[in-house]
Design a binder for these strands. Structure first.
Length: 767
DNA sequence: AAATTTCTAGTTTTT
DNA sequence: CTAGAAATTT
């Protein structure tokens, strides 16, 4: 038994072997968080404290869930497939499929991804003649999702003003529309499950008693609804004790507030669950000392922290290399040079990561890497199931499984084109609106030519369903690709080769899905759970309430087709981990979270970019940016580079930025400035002046000197200056001349100022 | 229905 | 500037 616990440090061991009570594990970057989580599960099972079916492990990404299962399989000889390990959304999907009746959903309900949701809202706004200038669909979507993420239905929101009242109305209409169509969005999966369990006592108690242990990864990323969901499921405040909730997270790596994550859940959890077991994992196994020092010193500038300090046994290692480039192009060029020398020193390309704050920054660097002939891989493009052609194919499959999905209907009713134009659709929408039914169901109500062409489309879908009745999923997919006319369509299109390839790939995706998810290879794709079920034994509880437990994996509650469609929505496919050739890894800092590399470049460290300018407007925005910087730094194992540029093209305009404030928050001794640290003759001269005369006097003297010597003209755009009150800044623009010359200066955190050059006391920071 | 022009927004992302 | 959507023309 104890081999499991081998090689754990004291902190880790303590966390793994905690008693069955609520616990909060503050797991620093690179402290072996996943290891603790999986070993804890293995230990609980191996010591007989809980059976594999008695615990629930929740993650945010499929990748993390898979990783956990893989590691667990390696530790214990158990089948992890049937275990309750998954994402919030995946687990909710499983519960809702099993209890679809109680949740008031059709068994074949479908999941809208963000694109589908947006188009559904656009449709709604149009149908109700709402001004989309005043209520942009995106904004309405954020409003709805934001409300759902807090667990709020439309009728529970107290609108601030008329606009918000309208949004609530739209929210309600949207929910009605989804209900009619038999579709749910991502947030709905969680909210619906939450409501199901809170309203249905026998069901709730069943699952509460079942899950003796609940383990949550990345707890700092939970939103309000997810926290409520966990509280409910753990039976907090209901039964004695409730289940043991084991939360693992790092408040310093909370970087998803913008999508509803609430770090406050960590302290709320500690308080509300009266957590006695708080363990900090502070031993870092990833980074060398200077890198860790930089991270520690930087993050200490944040006020709202639970408090944690990483340490390493690895020794200081190299200093962080800092480079100031004259332009974004020069920055990219420098990255190329350093990358080349890393590679020639034997570094693997895949161990070199270039990180940036926003995607727009990747272009220049990509271009430079391309010109230099260095292979690279950019993370975060379109994912497989998001590609237009794949979404089209999916839409046909969706219609076969649930014809009332209007989003799917509209996507393909005239694609490939079959003479169903705008007027036909409008007639159909009118009929659907009138009878309050789906577009598909409204087809018989449309008369004339439009009616017959629409009828043809319905026949196509029905025909495909009939034809594929006895087929296994991969075969079904192939038939639908043909019958829909998609393959033919792209064959005739000149640039359709890639798209055809993607469509073909769907057959193999289906094959892989069927074998991995445990569907009998030849099982008919349409076959309902009843026909397949050999598991899923009904459970009768004390009240005589019959529950079909969502016990075994999905095959018992879903047809292969439904399951595949859920899979397509919930797991949009990897764009990550294209572990193809050896390539330099390029990604945003956000997507670098959880990864590590021997060599890391953090680029574009400029005020306005990183920290991003919009962060200063948000509550605790700069603290979040600082955490983001902390995440970036802690990705590096051995060598870390930081760089910034004096000028940068952004939105077609040249911008002059100051270096990031984060440089002032890093320990001097851990940094090695490769370019001269903004010192020139002027600066040097100024220094001697400082020595001779008191502060204020010297400032004045220099300002006068400047004013006399070169009234207005001596300054140039892009130049760095310092001001007694506003600190360091960059001249962005100069207007007027002579004694009237005024300069627009970007003082970073102090904002943009326009100063009269003959009056303002400016000193030059040479470049 | 396809091709062309015009407009417009422009952090971060998973499910 | 520039990608992607929307509007407009052919």
């Amino acid at each position: 038994m104890h081999n499991l616990l081998h090689n754990l440090n004291d902190e880790q061991l303590a966390a793994v072997t905690l008693p069955a009570q609520s616990a909060l594990i503050l797991a620093g970057a690179g402290s072996g968080k996943t290891r603790v989580l999986t070993t804890r599960i293995a230990w609980l099972i191996q010591t007989g404290q809980v059976s594999p079916s008695g615990l629930l492990a929740v993650t945010f990404t499929n990748k993390a869930a898979k990783e956990m299962m893989t590691r667990l399989s390696a530790m214990l000889p158990i089948n992890t497939r049937g275990m309750w390990i998954g994402t919030f959304h995946g687990l909710c999907n499983r519960l809702l499929r099993t209890h679809h009746r109680d949740a008031a959903l059709p068994q074949t309900f479908q999941i809208l991804d963000t694109q589908d949701q947006l188009s559904a809202i656009k449709r709604l706004i149009k149908a109700h003649n709402v001004d989309d200038e005043k209520f942009p669909p995106k904004e309405v979507m954020y409003f709805i999702n934001g409300a759902k993420d807090q667990g709020l239905r439309a009728d529970k929101i107290e609108p601030y003003n008329a606009d918000e009242r309208k949004k609530c109305e739209l929210y309600q209409l949207y929910d009605d529309q989804c209900q009619r169509e038999g579709v749910v969005d991502f947030a709905e999966l969680l909210l619906r499950t939450y409501e199901l369990l809170s309203r249905n006592q026998p069901l709730r108690e069943h699952y509460q008693q079942r899950f003796k242990h609940i383990l949550v990864d990345e707890f700092q990323d939970t939103n309000d609804l997810q926290y409520k969901w966990l509280k409910l499921l753990s039976g907090h405040g209901e039964r004695d004790g409730g289940s043991a909730l084991f939360a693992v997270g790092d408040d310093d790596q909370s970087i998803y507030a913008f999508r509803g994550a609430n770090v406050g859940n960590m302290s709320a959890f500690e308080r509300e669950f009266k957590v006695q077991n708080l363990i900090k994992l502070e031993q870092n196994y990833r980074s060398h000392g200077h890198i860790l020092d930089a991270a520690n010193v930087l993050i200490a500038n944040n006020s709202k922290r639970l408090g944690k300090n990483l340490r390493t046994d690895a020794g200081h290692g190299e200093q962080v290399r800092v480079y100031e480039a004259s332009s974004d192009l020069a920055e990219a060029q420098w990255i190329i040079e350093e990358t080349k020398s890393l590679i020639s020193d034997g570094a693997a390309r895949s161990e070199i990561a270039v990180l940036y704050r926003s995607n727009a920054q990747s272009r220049v660097i990509e271009h430079a890497l391309f010109s230099a002939g260095i292979p690279y891989h950019v993370y975060g493009g379109l994912r497989y199931f998001q590609r237009a052609e794949v979404k089209h194919a999916i839409a046909y499959l969706q219609l076969m499984d649930n014809p009332h999905n209007d989003s799917a209907f509209l996507r393909v009713v005239n694609f490939p084109t079959r003479g169903i134009g705008l007027r036909s659709i409008e007639a159909l929408q009118a009929a659907a609106e009138q009878h309050r039914i789906s577009l598909y169901a409204a087809v018989p109500y449309v008369a004339g030519k439009a009616g017959s062409s629409l009828g043809g489309f319905v026949k196509l879908v029905e025909g495909a369903r009939f034809e594929t009745q006895q087929m296994a999923l991969p075969e079904l997919v192939r038939v639908v690709l043909e019958a829909s006319g998609l393959l033919t369509h792209y064959q005739t299109e000149k640039e359709g080769a890639d798209r055809i390839e993607n469509l073909e790939q769907m057959v193999s995706a289906a094959t892989q899905f069927v074998s991995e998810e445990g569907y009998g290879q030849g099982a008919p794709a349409h076959l309902g759970p009843q026909a397949q079920a050999q598991a899923g034994v009904p459970i009768v509880n004390e009240d005589g309430f019959e529950i079909l437990d969502a016990d075994a994996a999905l095959p018992t509650v879903m047809s292969p087709l439904s399951a595949f469609l859920s899979h397509a929505s919930l797991e949009a496919g990897d764009n990550q981990a294209t572990a193809g050739q050896e390539a330099v890894q390029m990604m945003t800092v956000h997507s670098a979270k959880g990864l590590e590399f021997n060599n890391v470049f953090i680029t574009g460290l400029e005020e306005g970019l990183f920290p991003h300018e919009s962060s200063s407007r948000e509550h605790d925005g700069v603290e979040e940016e600082r955490r983001l910087m902390y995440v970036a730094i802690t990705r590096a194992r051995q060598r870390l580079y930081m760089c910034f540029a004096q000028t940068r093209m952004l939105h077609g305009q040249t911008r002059y930025n100051m270096k990031s404030r984060f440089f002032d928050e890093l320990p001097e001794e851990s940094l090695k400035w490769l370019s001269p640290k903004v010192q020139s003759h002027w600066f040097a001269n100024k220094k001697s002046a400082w020595d001779e005369t008191p502060l204020v006097g010297s400032d004045n003297a220099i300002a006068q000197k400047i004013a006399q010597k070169s009234p207005g003209s001596g300054w140039r755009i892009g130049e760095s200056v310092a001001h007694g009150k506003f600190g360091e800044g960059v001249i962005v623009n100069i207007e007027g001349s002579g004694n009237n010359a005024r300069a627009q200066i970007n003082f970073g955190s102090h904002g943009m100022k326009v100063l009269d050059l003959s009056i303002a006391k400016l000193e030059r920071l040479g470049r």
